[in-house]
Design a protein around this nucleic acid. Sequence first.
DNA 1: TCAAAAGTGTTGTGTGTACACCCATGT
DNA 2: ACATGGGTGTACACACAACACTTTTGA
Lengths: 230, 230
Amino acid sequence: MNQKNKKYPRPAVTVDVVLFTVIRGHLKVLLIRRKNPPFRGRWAIPGGFVGPRESLEEAALRELKEETNVSGVYLEQLYTFGAPNRDPRTRVITVAYFSLICANLVQVRASDDARDARWFSVRRLPRLAFDHLEIQRCALDRLKNKLGYSNIGFQLLPEKFTLTELQRVYEIILGRKIDKRNFRKKLTQLDILRGCSERRMAGVHRPARLYSFVQQKFSTRKGKGILFSF
Amino acid sequence: MNQKNKKYPRPAVTVDVVLFTVIRGHLKVLLIRRKNPPFRGRWAIPGGFVGPRESLEEAALRELKEETNVSGVYLEQLYTFGAPNRDPRTRVITVAYFSLICANLVQVRASDDARDARWFSVRRLPRLAFDHLEIQRCALDRLKNKLGYSNIGFQLLPEKFTLTELQRVYEIILGRKIDKRNFRKKLTQLDILRGCSERRMAGVHRPARLYSFVQQKFSTRKGKGILFSF
DNA sequence: TCAAAAGTGTTGTGTGTACACCCATGT
DNA sequence: ACATGGGTGTACACACAACACTTTTGA
């Protein structure tokens, strides 16, 4: 880090947030339609410039709040993209984040004057602006991988959920069926769920028990080996 | 990504490279002593500004080459650090990389007029400039974790190596002893090593067989589960 | 009584782990 | 012959994977 500041024109720095949720059995990602060139009319990952007094994470949280009105959601830095011509206007380096949110808790600010925001199934994305397809793929890969050795799956559900709902989240993201008994056995022996006394009635069948995630138990488990390996 | 460029002063963007190697049984990291304020005289991770026409990775490779004269080494983006006051002069966002190199293949440009560069054991680091201690810890965590599910351990060895040398790399980084028979059994059943006919004589004992890493076999293995779990 | 999802155990197979002795070499 | 690190196999524990039937509910 030499004192060469003058020699180097400074790039613009943005944060982009790949926001996932699960709606009716599909993994969805939030996109915003661009109103201005370049890529006018194309869909893009929400993002914006990093303010002079905020950290990168603060900038990402601010963007997230602007789009969804929620705070306290899961947010993780993903990767930084800086190809010289990824934005045709000027040099823009973007620090990408990915975020998980429970669909019940969020009301997307859609379709007001300034913006057109929609959830898209990750299987059926429209053409994206800039290198946003690459960013989105990177986020999806991270999500799939991280599901195997962390607790992030719970972030897509409300505080109380049934075991079948949790299993669906895993199946949707991993893209394959999981054996019900093995799934439940694994979770109970991980000792990270607290069953509450409530039941949930949903349809003409036996009511399902509701559970909540117990953070502290999870984080104190020994770190060696895989946690979920379905 | 709105058109608000004017409102936001652009930060400087740098890349920093945490460069690891193994020398005589110790995991080492390359540091450079700062000749100028701030933090004059403190040791720092090598890095520098991102040029206007180069990608982030190109900038990291350039820095790496400037420090070590080598190319073709393992390099991976680590994390981006952007706390508003991490550099007291001005806003600097740094994209950190980490890199692994075989000590035999590198000749550090040490102690010429402009720079004072040294390998430090990760166990005995000096006080570091900026937030470089945090960056270095982040890199070390990543290295330890990634050792378990990837092939990066081989990057710290020359092309031909003995199984004991490979085991030492794992023991040094993980910080614990590994059973010799289990280590060798695991590697042979992974089928990623080719034994060559050469032997290495080193000291007054039976000569050791030399092996080389076979990339293609490794990369085609099924990705589920852990690969190394010593 | 029927449909629909909830809930529950056992067995075989593979992988991790612990452990001790002989081999090849130079002095 | 001896000191030094190289090289090899077996037995137990545990985790993953496959698999089918009973329960509870509302209509």
